[in-house]
Design a protein around this nucleic acid. Sequence first.
DNA 1: CAACTTTCTGTAATCGCTTACAAAAGCTGG
DNA 2: CCAGCTTTTGTAAGCGATTACAGAAAGTTG
Lengths: 326, 326
Amino acid sequence: MNNQQTPTIQDVARLAGVSTGTVSRVLNQRPGVHPETRARVLEVVQRLGYVPMQAARELTGKGDTVGILLAPGVRRYIPYFVLLFEHLSEALWQAGLRLEETPTDPAGLPLKPAKGYILLGAHDHDPRLEALAQARTPHVLVGVYPGAFWVAPDDEGGAYAATRHLLELGHREIAHLTGQPQHQAGRERLRGYRRALEAYQVPYRPELVLDGDFSTLTAYRVVRKAWEGGLRFSALFAASDEMAVGALAALEDVGQRVPQDVSLVGYDDLPEVGEQLTTVRQDIAEIARTTARLLKEALAGAAPHGIRVPVRLVVRGTTCLKEVEG
Amino acid sequence: MNNQQTPTIQDVARLAGVSTGTVSRVLNQRPGVHPETRARVLEVVQRLGYVPMQAARELTGKGDTVGILLAPGVRRYIPYFVLLFEHLSEALWQAGLRLEETPTDPAGLPLKPAKGYILLGAHDHDPRLEALAQARTPHVLVGVYPGAFWVAPDDEGGAYAATRHLLELGHREIAHLTGQPQHQAGRERLRGYRRALEAYQVPYRPELVLDGDFSTLTAYRVVRKAWEGGLRFSALFAASDEMAVGALAALEDVGQRVPQDVSLVGYDDLPEVGEQLTTVRQDIAEIARTTARLLKEALAGAAPHGIRVPVRLVVRGTTCLKEVEG
DNA sequence: CAACTTTCTGTAATCGCTTACAAAAGCTGG
DNA sequence: CCAGCTTTTGTAAGCGATTACAGAAAGTTG
């Protein structure tokens, strides 16, 4: 009767010669199943390629539905968020959580309550944090928010590593293209940049800090204008790959070769953005998995805490040793 | 017993004094329900803010799962696709279709088969079309593909309207910033531009066609370089809002005011991109709904056909009458 | 080996919704 | 007023999982 269909728990039970209850217990790693039985069931599961149907388990009240809340004003086109979103939906599913569309009111609060939330791009004094905390709704923030559950990449560390890389290549005039100061990530990366300079006893020169906004176009204009205005540097650390792409074009247009004349480091390592860039890789998949894990903890009522996800410098073709003059 | 819980179909039935079957029929717009009863049920649904639980309806076998396939090489960060994606997931849900994550192999073919597919950004001779047609898998394409189910905005008409708008404002030197020629949309918009010029008997000047690639940065560079190279025009029609944003910045940087010196028209009318732009609005929600509808037809085995979704010129602040010289 | 425990497994109710089928109600004309 | 329709509504059986609860099997003990 069950020809060609995707297998159900019934099929597994039948083939393994046990009841559906037992299969379910095996699948959910519940105790009280004989090891041999367990093995047999798992073997059949494997063979059939059986995957429990999410809808059904949700019906039993198992599958908690969660929502993702993007801060109002945050442009959801930003590659980083698009990717994070994708990985989150994958990670949540893996964790047995179901991601739901969450329409929000103008204040950014969800109209349809879910069991828990993930907040992206929250500002430090986001009123929604207050509201969620008041309502004791489990939530996890991506970013640093002491007192709540949070997950954040080690932005300062990444920026430090990027800058140090340039320093070790012999560069001393290192410019930094920032993100908006209202974004935590932008601030932290600036901090990492300064800390690295300090560690190498290179004086901090404010004029080398160029104000960007994470957009490619602005990066281009700022860098070009600065260079045409006479600012010189042998290396540039951009706070995002997108900005690095803009900077790269600008440098090219003012006649500088990368990396021979100016070394360039980006940040994020987004696929399809600046393929050959030396950059700092954020493991977005890892951030997503960690977020999902914390959300489960939050749903289980654990005490809030935060986790830093490490980042890694990836050296590619846009940086090189500073050429010693003459 | 059902205190504080999200309401179920049972609650609705009880309060409306009917059976769950009837409520279900109302909700699914099935015939054979007395108008009065229908109204009463809807009233209760409204009052309770009842929303059917997707998991449950999926369990009944209702929810055909469908997948969205993005052509390989298409950058999914593109605002247009992000938006289309969102609207599609909404529209599919409304149509009772369940959108599934569809991991694909390197060739862009789905690994986990769904009942039907929506293809975005397909090229004209995409091998996947062949494969899907062979396998008789129902699918709908966004774009024009005679012989298959397709939905496409009226790009040529939109471009025509945009260009005509500029012509009627008295402009005669109208430049056009194109998308890549391998994109249907880019080609069609160029065609609309040419057709409008023809209709107004303005000679077509190839040098006024600037090669863009739908990106903001390239738009900026191309426009700036062209202007600095001596090219002059009193109006510019960009084939996307993102390119218009780049063009706007470029014009500003070469000392031209918009719209006093140069009128500018974009395309797409994406929220959060170039708010004040005169542009051509694509009704993405409508495209999504139409796509969902066609997919249902395809699933039902209907004969393939295509639908054009109309677009609309939205006049805002970046266009004005051409000033007649002193 | 009887009498208990303890471990393991099966049974069946349940979640919220859809839908085939049956039943009831509303018409119609003679 | 009733047979014979048609329209409207209710009933109940699933869909695929989970999980109390009960029952069977295996292990312990005196």
